[in-house]
Amino acid sequence: MSFNHIFKAKLTWDSVSKETIATTKTYFKTHQITIEGKENLTVSAAKAFKGDPSLYNPEDLLLSSLVSCHMMSYLYVCSQNGIDVLSYQDDAEATLEVSENGSGRFIEVRLYPKVVIQQSKKIDEAINLHVKANELCFIANSCNFKIVHYPTVSS
């Protein structure tokens, strides 16, 4: 049996442009994302794509979603296997490939989770549970690019 959940986001953008050359119009890419009951999120394009580098961009948010979802899935599988997680951090990286025609896509995400657990006898099991966490991760299951894990676990 499956369940469907609907997530909603409202995007708001107003046309503000600047003429860079007489025939070229460049749009400012800053916009607002509104999700009911939450603070507005101001988003732009990445600096490489002429956005505001001080703001989050869609690429940041995709990587953040993936690393966050993996951690929550990992904490779930650890709890199911009697492993007490004391801390978790990750310095994730994503590679975006952009073709000559301007289209692009993520080709790989690398997760580097550093986990501290209570039970030293369960370190190997805790490392292996990253595979199960990836299988359960909603965001990972929605991606069409390679996701690689380089976990370290200590007690």
Rank of each mutant, 00 (worst) to 15 (best):
M71Q: 09
M71V: 02
M71P: 06
M72Y: 01
M72E: 03
M72T: 12
M72C: 07
S73L: 02
S73W: 03
S73G: 14
Y74M: 11
Y74N: 12
Y74A: 06
L75F: 00
L75R: 01
Y76L: 13
C78K: 11
C78H: 15
C78Y: 13
Q80M: 08
Q80P: 08
Q80T: 08
N81I: 03
N81T: 10
G82C: 00
G82S: 10
D84A: 06
V85H: 00
L86I: 15
S87Q: 12
Q89C: 14
Q89E: 15
Q89R: 15
Q89M: 15
D91P: 04
D91I: 05
A92P: 14
A92T: 08
A94G: 15
A94L: 15
T95M: 15
L96K: 02
L96G: 04
L96M: 12
L96F: 14
E97H: 14
E97A: 15
V98C: 09
V98R: 13
V98A: 07
V98Q: 12
S99T: 07
E100R: 03
E100A: 10
E100G: 13
E100M: 05
E100Y: 05
N101H: 07
N101V: 02
N101E: 08
G102V: 06
G102R: 11
G102F: 05
S103V: 08
S103C: 06
G104E: 06
R105A: 00
F106M: 02
F106V: 02
F106S: 10
I107T: 15
I107A: 05
I107S: 10
I107R: 13
